[in-house]
Design a protein around this nucleic acid. Structure first.
Lengths: 205, 205
DNA sequence: AATTAGATATACATAATGTATAGTCAATAT
DNA sequence: ATATTGACTATACATTATGTATATCTAATT
């Protein structure tokens, strides 16, 4: 008697909907909660109107849920505009635009801040977030390679990439956000990134 | 029958010694542990050869212990050199020196990284660490005021201060430390901080 | 009408923080 | 000399979280 397994359209649709509902409840809980320490699967489950076991059924673990929330935020965070930015003729203008896009991303949903906090307590989740950040690093590297002249050392390129990577990171954005609007932070970071390009055009130093 | 309370030299000395031992055990546990999530008072107490209740007796709470560890690290972190740095005639040289001192501080004891992780889960501890960081901000502000000319707007000064504050923060140090020695990180941060001063001398832009 | 996927109900194991209460023992005070 | 006191211990308990296990329910499919 082989088990007759099947895929059910109605069932998987309903499951996908509850999954969405849980993710929504989780990001709302992250947004409204005071700290990541108060973020429990119990709270999320109640907010979503499901059982805690349903959360485990859908995401496997707390970490799985957090990753799903991060991906959901990334999906609606405006990062798709990066393709256009990278295609710009002037790589410096592209960098400015990139900074703008990431400032928008970091500021759009305050849950990203809480997710970065979660990196501290869960090394594997931290690694997952870092991997997702590598896309930004690759973008910066590509722009630096276009900006840097032939005589620029690999070390100088690496320095510029890592510095701009740090300048466009969430921690830097959060630090500069004290007493500044999103656009003001963006302007400060853009200026700093442009300044970080200086060693690339004058390889004498 | 008034209670006859008294201060005991031998007793308080012994207490201070166990307190030291617990702090030492805690910072060692932070250093050797993989994540702040694995840092428990149970582990620390056993490592120090005392009971968990003794830890509570001495520090009141997990947070109290973490603050004590932070202060202990700060005491031996070389920050006393800041006074000399601030007294330097050339404020730009003083800034370079300041960056050097803080790179030394962030790299001296890897427990500081774990303590920064602990900020994510304990808002009050985070606030306590932030207050201790304000000393750095005041130092940067003083230097910027010496460097900036009269025609420089308060906004430009604030931007420079906050940017340099972010550049000299632990997160930036940690981010740049991937694949770099302490001195290499120091050099990169120094260059970036010097570049952040550019808007202060030419107020035309 | 039997089966199956998703969700629930309930229970349990584990680990951590924090509080409460009584007890131990050497250092003090009278 | 003896009672008292301060630091530490022993033990227990309440609370909160994560994560696992097992049985049950219900509606969608075969």
């Amino acid at each position: 008697m082989p088990p007759r397994s099947y895929v059910s359209p109605a069932r998987s649709a309903a499951a996908a909907e509850t999954r969405e509902r849980v993710i929504e409840a989780a990001s709302r809980t992250l947004r409204e909660g005071e700290s990541i320490a108060r973020f429990s699967l119990d709270t999320v489950a109640k907010a979503a109107g499901v059982t805690r076991l349903t959360v485990y059924n859908q995401f496997g673990s707390r970490r799985g849920l957090l990753e799903a929330v991060f991906d959901e935020i990334a999906r609606h965070g405006g990062l798709h505009q990066l393709a256009d930015a990278m295609a710009m003729a002037d790589p410096r203008a592209a960098l400015d635009r990139m900074v703008e896009i990431f400032c928008g991303f970091w500021s759009r949903d305050s849950a990203v801040g809480r997710l970065h906090d979660a990196m501290a307590t869960d090394p594997e989740f931290a690694e997952a977030v870092r991997e997702r950040n590598e896309r930004r690093r690759r973008g910066v590297t590509a722009l630096i390679d276009r900006i840097a002249g032939k005589g620029v050392s690999p070390q100088a390129r690496k320095d510029a990439v890592d510095l701009i990577f740090a300048l466009t990171s969430y921690p830097t954005f959060a630090s500069l956000s004290a007493g500044r609007s999103r656009d003001e932070v963006c302007r400060v970071v853009q200026t700093a990134c442009r300044a970080a390009l200086a060693p690339l055009v004058n390889p004498s130093s």
